[in-house]
Structure formats: structure tokens, C-alpha cells
Amino acid sequence: MGTLLRMRALLVVNPAATTTSARTRDVLTHALASEMKLEAITTEYRGHARDLARRAAERRDVELVVALGGDGTVNEVVNGLLRHGPDPDRLPRLAVVPGGSTNVFARALGLPNDAVEATGALLDALRRGSERTVGLGLAAGTPGTADEAAPSRWFTFCAGLGFDAGVVGRVEQQRERGKRSTHALYIRQLLRHFVEDPNRRHGTITLRRPDAEPVRDLVLSIVCNTAPWTYLGNRPVYASPRASFDTGLDVLGLSRLTPAAVTRYGTQLLTSSPERGPHGKHAVSLHDLTDFTLHSKAPLPLQMDGDHLGLRTSVTFTGVRRALRVIV
């Protein structure tokens, strides 16, 4: 207990976290502050969590950064902590209190999805000194292409180029108009994107990796750093069941999205398990990749950890196996 009370920590609070109230966030903050030297800061703009975490990492006197929010908040904090890349001798330390609508990263680590229960589990883990080193994905513009100048960005659980990223973009537009982030919203936007997406009929994506034949004509490419890929309520959904924080990156690619294919692969996703994900003639599954590039003949939407990042034609991915220490 004495060691814990001396720990200096930064709590980054997203006031727009969808599943916590202001009162709940205040109670959680006080619970954490009672057991460590805690500085709590509420984010005020997009990218603020990244800036706060970067400054904490550069100060080097902060031993722990706690993210209270959803996957977007966690992603920003991670990108701030790793602004200058992971120092193998002093990996940054992160804790997560889930406050979003899905909380994939926290749940994939085995944390409770309830913010109050997760705070209790976090404090117990800190008292025990329990932590886990995890790998992350890093995406950057490909040298020699129009996207060369695109900034590098870390992701914790998934990225996507193509159809799924287009759905994420549509959902973000609806949320900006005041719609709540719900599974029904995602399904409606998926159906609309299926009808309107001009690129789903003819795959434009090629996956290239060292010492292997390229995989061509993909319509959809999902990059997974862990499993599950997402959750529908309490149901885990596995795009790449073998993906793990302890290995490189996995990729699920689909080369056809006809109505029949969508029905087939959609059903496979809904019934997926840790043993079996989407499979079939038009599905490609690759496991434990360290370096690869996704290149598209036409600009396609890109998403990372559920955040739409605009259109890209070429993205280079790297799986970094030891990037972060997480309290679990």
C-alpha cells in the first residue's frame, strides 16, 4: 500500500464517455486519488488526450497514465505515450477504465466492462504489481506514394482499409449529428454503405509482404492486433481468432461483397468463436505478420480503433511485439 500511495499518476478523463455519468466519473477519480498521487485532467478537444499523455511521457516523473473513456480515448493516450516510439528499457505504463460504448481494448485484456468494477480491478492489480506487456500495431504512409507524408499512428486492437472503414466513417457522421453510438446505428450504416459503396463490386486493394506473393483484388481488409475484433453487446465477434497481443498482426481480407457474400460472411462473423472465424473461397486469413503494405488503386477510407482517418491509397503496417505495459 505504501508503494502505491507514492505512485505518481495522470488520469485522463473524457467527459463525453458514453456509459459514465459526471457523478460516476467524479467517484472513480476520488477512488483512484485516495490511493496514489493523482493528477486528473478532463479533455477539452479532439487530440487533447494524446497531448496530455505525450507531456506525461516526456516529463518522466509520471509512472502511470490512466485513460477513463472509450477506445478512442485509449488510442489517443497510447499515441501520446508512444510519440517517440517505445523505449525498450522503459516501456510506458497504461491503465484503462472503460467508459465507451464498446471498449474492445479493455475487454480483450480481460477487464470488466463496468467502469466501477474496472476501477476496483485496477486498484487490486496495482497493489499486486500485476501488469502485462502487449504488442501494438503501427500504421504509416508508404514511402514513394502520395500518402508518404501521412503521420504514423499506433492502434491497439484493429485497423481497416476499405469497406469496414467506410462504415465507421458513416457512423462518425451520424454521431456528429447527435445520434447515439449503438449497434443498431452501425447496422443501418452498414446496409447503406453496402448499397452506395462504388468500390465493393471490384476489389482495389493489394496486400504485399516480404517473401510472399501479393494478395490482390481485396474489397475489405481488416487488420487485427487481438481477438475479439469487436463486440455486439456481450457477444464477442472474431474476424481473426488467432490474433493476439503477444504476436504480430493478423489480416482478414475479402475479395467479394455481393449480397450472397455479405450474408455468408456476416453470418460467419455473428457465429464466430475463438476457434473459427470467416472462411471460404473469397476470404483470406493471414496470421502473425510483422511488416506489410495495403495498396489500393483508388483512395479508400482508413480506420484505426474505430476512428475514421480519411482516404488513403497506400498504408504500411508494422506489428511491434513489445510496445506497452498495461495494468491488468
Rank of each mutant, 00 (worst) to 15 (best):
residue 135 G to H: 02
residue 194 F to M: 11
residue 64 L to P: 03
residue 249 L to D: 08
residue 51 D to Q: 15
residue 287 H to E: 13
residue 63 E to D: 15
residue 3 T to S: 14
residue 77 V to R: 12
residue 324 L to A: 07
residue 281 K to N: 11
residue 96 V to A: 02
residue 158 C to G: 10
residue 154 W to N: 00
residue 310 G to V: 10
residue 92 P to R: 00
residue 224 C to I: 04
residue 19 T to R: 14
residue 173 Q to V: 08
residue 89 D to T: 12
residue 211 D to P: 02
residue 266 G to M: 00
residue 29 T to V: 07
residue 290 T to E: 13
residue 237 V to C: 11
residue 84 H to V: 06
residue 153 R to V: 12
residue 249 L to K: 06
residue 155 F to Y: 15
residue 13 V to P: 07
residue 325 R to L: 11
residue 152 S to Q: 14
residue 12 V to L: 03
residue 54 R to G: 00
residue 284 V to E: 11
residue 322 R to S: 14
residue 201 R to M: 10
residue 102 T to F: 00
residue 160 G to R: 00
residue 48 H to A: 05
residue 86 P to E: 04
residue 256 R to H: 09
residue 55 R to H: 14
residue 27 V to D: 04
residue 271 T to H: 11
residue 39 E to G: 06
residue 15 P to I: 04
residue 4 L to S: 08
residue 9 A to S: 14
residue 267 T to G: 15
residue 315 V to C: 05
residue 211 D to S: 12
residue 198 P to N: 11
residue 285 S to F: 07
residue 314 S to E: 10
residue 24 T to C: 13
residue 279 H to I: 05
residue 304 M to L: 15
residue 65 V to N: 00
residue 217 D to H: 14
residue 214 P to F: 00
residue 206 T to C: 08
residue 56 A to Y: 04
residue 133 T to N: 06
residue 263 T to W: 10
residue 244 S to M: 11
residue 326 V to T: 13
residue 201 R to E: 14
residue 202 H to E: 15
residue 302 L to D: 05
residue 208 R to E: 15
residue 219 V to K: 03
residue 10 L to A: 08
residue 274 P to F: 10
residue 48 H to Y: 10
residue 191 L to H: 02
residue 67 A to P: 11
residue 298 A to V: 15
residue 45 Y to M: 10
residue 194 F to G: 02
residue 33 A to N: 06
residue 230 T to Y: 07
residue 158 C to T: 15
residue 314 S to G: 09
residue 236 P to L: 10
residue 82 L to I: 09
residue 293 T to R: 02
residue 146 A to V: 12
residue 59 R to P: 00
residue 321 R to T: 08
residue 49 A to P: 02
residue 220 L to I: 04
residue 33 A to W: 01
residue 205 I to C: 10
residue 133 T to C: 03
residue 206 T to V: 12
residue 49 A to I: 07
residue 99 G to L: 02
residue 194 F to Y: 03
residue 183 H to L: 13
residue 167 V to A: 06
residue 158 C to Q: 14
residue 136 L to P: 00
residue 256 R to Q: 12
